[in-house]
Structure formats: C-alpha cells, structure tokens
Amino acid sequence: MQNASLAKPVWLHADAYERYMGRWSRQVAPPFLRWLDRPAGQRWVDVGCGTGALSAAVLARCAPARVTGVDPSEGFLRKAREQLGDRAELHCASGDALPLAGGCSDATVAALMLNFAADPAAVVKEMARVTAVGGCVAAYVWDYGGRMDLIRGYWDAARELEPTVPSQDTGPRVALCRPEALAALFEQCGLAQVATRAVDIAMHFANFDDYWQPFLGGQGPAPAHAMGLPAPQREQLRERLRQRFAARAGDAFELGARAWAVRGIVAA
C-alpha cells in the first residue's frame, strides 16, 4: 500500500507545526498511551517523532527504561531536543530505514505520520523489525475524511470558493485515515492481535486568529495550499472560514477531532 498520489509535504518549521498540529497531537497522546497499557520499564521507539509530542507523553506517563526518537527533519529534531533534553536519544532518519538494531524496542509507536509515508508498509515493517517478540507496534492518524473539523472545514470552504480546488485535500485520498485500512496494513505486515480504536478530542480556539494563523505557517497540505494562494484569494478564504466558525460561536469556539489508533503484537 503506497501513498504515491500524495505530494510530499515539507516539514521544516517546528514552531509553525506546533501551532498548527503539534498542540493537538499532545492531546491525543495520553489516551493513546492509556489504550496501549504498556508496563513500566520498557524501551520505546517513537518513529516520526517530530517535535517530540508523543515522546514527551511517554516520558511523563509510562516510566520508560529508554525513549528513542527518529525523524527525517532536522528542524523538528531541534525542537524535540529543546523539549526532551537528554531524556531521549534522537536520530535523523526516515521511518522506512530506522538506524536501530532489530529487537531493540518493546513498544514502537508513530504519531500522525503513516499517512504521509510514501510506503506505509515499509515503515510498519521497520517498526516491527526493531520491536522484540511480544512487543507492541502502534500508531495513530487523523480521521481526515471524517471527524477532523479543523482541516475538513478548511477544504470545504476552499472548495466552495474554487470547485476545482487542487487535490491537496487529504481526506478523500488517504486510505489510512480509516480503521479498516489501518488494521489491514498491520496484518499485512505480519502483526498479531491487531486492534483499532477512535480517540476523540476537543479543539478549543481562543478566537478565530487562533484557528487561522497556523495555516500561514506552510506546514502540511492545507497550510501549503493557503500560502500558495494569491493574497486576495487567501483573504477571501479566511473570511469564508471566519463566517463558518467564529460568527457561529462568538469569540471563542470549539471543533471536534478524531484520531484512529491501531496496535499489533510482534509474533514469534
């Protein structure tokens, strides 16, 4: 299973990513880890660790023996080092070529990255390779095609203004935003006892700018689309979104979001 139709996003600016998506990943991480229910003293690997949201949650909640993070973006790793300090070992590498020995992990996890991998199966197989027999491989991705109001609202408004809006819209094109596809991927990669679950969170915005400004950071398909628009069209889209969200809910407002989580066990 490949994501060959996806344009490869450029992940460079960690602070912009934190404002756009990192802050919400931090809300998903605790219920995701509770669901995994791994014992203390385990070795964890965070694949596509980004700015360190999931690694930080592992350190805070799971009493790990060791946390290792891997990400291809040096910009994101700099932010992760700021946040994690010497509590995690960090490597710059892609998820399909982990610079780690086989069986070095008891729990190998990935947050919000499988749907952006050119070859998700290659990533999951690598995650399984570095995980000891009986260990857990797990991930979560946003439900782009369903309950991810922040992004769904953006693309719906963009399409209202331009019916032929380019195909950066992730929802209709990414099979891995659905639990059935995630389970099939993990089973295809040889994992046992595969299970999925939804993780729902509420996104609270202090005002409309709290929603809109992160789209100007260029990190991810929707922000890249926003920054590629001529200024008048971008302002028109901003006003359409303001009417859709802020005018309805006053100054502060809330949107819903769902992540789909998947886990499996490395069999002997």
Rank of each mutant, 00 (worst) to 15 (best):
Q2V: 04
A4V: 06
W11L: 12
E18A: 10
R19Y: 09
R19W: 07
R19L: 14
S25W: 00
R26W: 01
L33E: 07
W35S: 01
W35K: 09
D37C: 04
P39K: 00
D46K: 12
G48P: 02
G48N: 01
C49P: 01
G50P: 03
A53D: 12
L54Y: 06
S55F: 01
A57K: 01
V58I: 07
L59F: 10
V67S: 06
G69Q: 01
G69C: 01
V70L: 05
D71Y: 02
R81T: 14
Q83K: 13
D86Q: 11
D86M: 07
A88F: 07
H91S: 05
C92D: 15
S94L: 14
S94Q: 14
D96N: 13
P99G: 14
L100V: 06
G102N: 14
D106I: 03
A111D: 15
L114C: 10
A118G: 15
A118Q: 15
A121M: 08
V123W: 00
V123H: 00
K125I: 08
K125T: 04
A132N: 06
G135M: 04
Y140N: 03
D143N: 09
D149T: 07
L150I: 07
L150V: 10
G153W: 06
Y154E: 05
W155C: 02
S167M: 14
Q168I: 10
G171V: 09
R173Q: 09
C177D: 13
C177S: 07
P179R: 03
G190C: 01
A198V: 02
A198G: 09
D200T: 04
M203L: 13
F208Q: 00
D209A: 12
D209V: 09
Y211P: 00
W212Y: 02
Q213F: 07
F215E: 03
G217R: 01
G218W: 00
G220P: 05
P221A: 04
M227D: 04
G228H: 02
L229M: 04
Q233C: 12
R234H: 09
Q236I: 14
R240T: 06
R240P: 01
L241V: 03
Q243R: 13
A249Q: 06
A257V: 05
A257E: 03
V262D: 02
R263N: 10
G264N: 08
A268T: 15
